[in-house]
Structures are given as C-alpha cells and as structure tokens.
Computed example of a mutant assay.
Amino acid sequence: MLPPLRIGPITVATPVVLAPMAGVTNRAFRTLCREAGQSTGFDPGLYVAEMVTSRALVERNEAALRIVTFGADESPRSAQVYGVDPATVGAAVRIIAAEDRADHVDLNFGCPVPKVTRKGGGAALPWKRQLFTDIVREAVGAAEPYGIPVTIKMRKGIDDDHLTYLEAGRIAEGLGVAAVALHARTAAQHYSGVADWESIARLKEAVRTVPVLGNGDIWSAEDAIDMVRRTGADGVVVGRGCQGRPWLFADLAAAFNGSDARVRPGLREVADVLYRHGELMIDYYDGDEHRGVRDLRKHMAWYLKGYAVGGEARHALARVSSLAELRELLDTLDLTVGYPGADAEGQRGRAGTPKTPHLPYGWLDSRELDAEFEAKLREAELSVSGG
C-alpha cells in the first residue's frame, strides 16, 4: 500500500489519477470511473476533466465552460488547462479559481498531436525554458490566493535528442506546483512503443519535495503496482487503459488497498455499463439525445474489445443514434457471453507508429523564445479543446 497522495490541500486516499483525454473524460465517463472506484468500498482517486484551452475559457466559450462544469457529487473537481501565452493561461486559471469551478488545475505540457505542437504547445512547449517558466509561474500565482493547487503533466520531451522533463520538473517544483506527472514517452513516440518507466524513476530522483506521478502503459492494476514498485512514483495516471473499461478503477482501488479483487464483467455487465454511459452522455449534453448518443459511438469498440460480438452488430452500434436504438441493439447480443480474459485487456485503440513532431518553423534552433515567435504564439491559441 502507498500512503495517500497529497496534492496541496487535497488528499487522495487511493493514489490513482484519471488522465484528461479529449473527447473522453467528460462528466459522463468520469462518473462511471468514480462509481467503479467507490464500489470497492475504498476511497477513489482523482478524476480529471478533458483538456480545455485557456483562450476559450477567457472568451467564455460555451463548449469550454461545459468542460469545466462538474457534477454536484464530484469532489475534488479537477480541470486541465492548455495554453501557449502566459497571460492567457493565468487569466483562465483565475476564472476557474475565482468562480469556484474546480478544486485543482493541471497544466498540459504533454499533448503530442500536431494541431497543438505545431503551435508550440503541449509536449513542444517545455523546450522553450522561459516560456514554460512564465506559464507555470502565472498559473500558480493566479491560483494561490484561492488555495487551488496547480500541477503539471508532461512528456519526456520532443524526441530523444530534445529531452526536457528533468529540467521542467525541477523548474515547476521551484515555482510551487503541487505535483508533477510524466507520460514516459516523447512527443515523437506519440503512443507507440513501450513507455520508458526508468525516466519516471529519474524524475523522482530529481523532484524531491512534491509528488511525482507516472503515466504510460498501465493496462491493469498489476501494471500500476509494478510501475510504483519499479520507479518509486507516488502514484499513477491512467489514460488509454480505462477506455471502455471504467471498472479498471475498481481494480486499481482494490490493488492499492491490498486486495486481489478484480472486476471481470461478462457481456451483459458490459452492455449495462454502456447503456448507462449513454444515459449519462445525454444528461451531459442537457438532454440532447442525438448529440449524446453520437458522442458515445467512439467508445463502442473499446467496450466490446475481446468479446464475441459479430462485425454486423459492431458496425450497427458504431452508428447508433438514439437511446432506444442502443437498447435494442444491445439486446440482440448474446448477453450470456462471459469475460474473455486477456482478449478484453491490454492496449486500447491503435498505438500507431513514431511520428516526426510538427513544430513551428525553427522551434528547435534555440531554447529561448524570440520576439517574433512570442507574437505568433499569442495569435496561435486554439479554441475549446486542443486534443
């Protein structure tokens, strides 16, 4: 067992964090994960909302404000902010804190997708030391009067020749962040290959006064325990491993509290969770059934991974457009099918292959940010969610 995870004034009894994932970790999915963790009788972890861009928050964009709207039973409330301009990030964090929209703010320095990195954001940003420093300082300063802890989530760096994680971790620690999380891959790896857990151990050696959390290739509770044992991390951040498997948080809660109980759902149980997910999605979209069910489609393949469901049924579920249709399609499945074991576990979705990161022209020429780049970054803030 690990001691509780302390993030500023917040104590998380089970040191497990749901990673923010764009288009996935909205209130509906967070509810399923939290309920799964609570079902064990152990205190659950921390569930982070999907990433929201600072500019969209400052402009009071409706979709952005929806992302940082939490359920009445969500506590602590955790939001992740992305941005490339220090002043805008600071203003966004101040809105969240002053309007009591969250109890914790995480800063995104780990997103590897081109539409983010080509603007100098996400995993590309720590390469510019002063820009990284200024953003973290502004965020911490904006949150501090309200007692809101700020954390960061990052990658190892842009690629193996441009690693930044140790320096960024030490800078963030010195600026007063409450925890540092590392996805143990570079931006160039995207989600391919094997996560370098040894880098988490090195970060733990470098950052000594705040918790260090490890992320990458946690597909089971056993993986999480193994990561902590091998790296000395203070907790884990779980992303793709829980897609279509919110019950993974029951396994994690049990494992970190010394229990070997594990959830092994048959197809009937999966169908019940999937249907509830649909109901929660509709509620998240204020009763807009078509929008809620349409947004559920991306989850179908994850939920059904490994189960004996024919191609025709999978195709129909991936095109479902109403709750009644979802119920009807689920009822046509052979719900007596039991848990398929390892086939339902492991990696979710496509890991892909290494990719050359998309960066602003000349980004790697210097660690410093010149005036021209600075002006471009201010214009480059994205809207709503950066992926």
Rank of each mutant, 00 (worst) to 15 (best):
R94F: 02
I135E: 05
L32I: 11
P354N: 05
A63T: 09
K156D: 00
A344G: 12
V24C: 05
R245E: 10
H277A: 06
H190K: 15
D134S: 13
I95Y: 05
R327D: 13
A143L: 03
G310A: 11
P112A: 07
S220C: 01
K119C: 14
A233D: 08
L32P: 04
Y191M: 06
E312L: 13
A201M: 00
I225D: 01
L107D: 05
T336I: 06
P357R: 07
T356D: 13
E167P: 02
W302K: 03
V12C: 04
R229P: 01
P15L: 11
M1G: 12
V89A: 01
S78A: 15
A271Q: 12
G8V: 09
P15R: 11
P76N: 07
D343A: 15
L317P: 08
T353D: 12
R208G: 07
T25F: 09
V105K: 03
L364K: 14
R319N: 12
P3R: 13
A201N: 00
V84F: 09
H183A: 08
A318R: 15
F373A: 11
E374V: 00
C242Y: 04
R208D: 00
V136W: 06
R276N: 02
A63K: 15
L326C: 10
A181N: 08
G338K: 08
E167Y: 03
L175H: 05
G216L: 08
R118N: 14
E368N: 11
Y284T: 13
S54K: 01
R378G: 15
R367N: 13
A184G: 12
A142R: 06
R202L: 08
E138F: 05
I200F: 02
P4T: 10
Q80W: 04
Y284N: 09
A380P: 04
V113I: 15
L335A: 12
A92Q: 11
R245L: 13
T69V: 02
R101A: 04
P357N: 10
D103K: 13
L280I: 01
G37N: 13
A187E: 02
G349V: 06
P265V: 10
A19Y: 06
D43S: 15
N26S: 07
T40M: 09
A181P: 10
L333A: 12
F132K: 00
W302A: 15
G122L: 13
D103L: 01
R118Q: 14
M21S: 07
S199K: 01
L382Q: 14
E138C: 03
T336F: 02
V105Q: 00
E269M: 04
L5R: 12
D251L: 14
A316G: 04
T353C: 03
D283W: 07
I67V: 15
H358I: 00
Y191W: 13
N26H: 14
L333Y: 10
M21E: 06
T40D: 11
R185N: 06
G147M: 09
D343M: 14
R202W: 01
A301Y: 11
N61E: 14
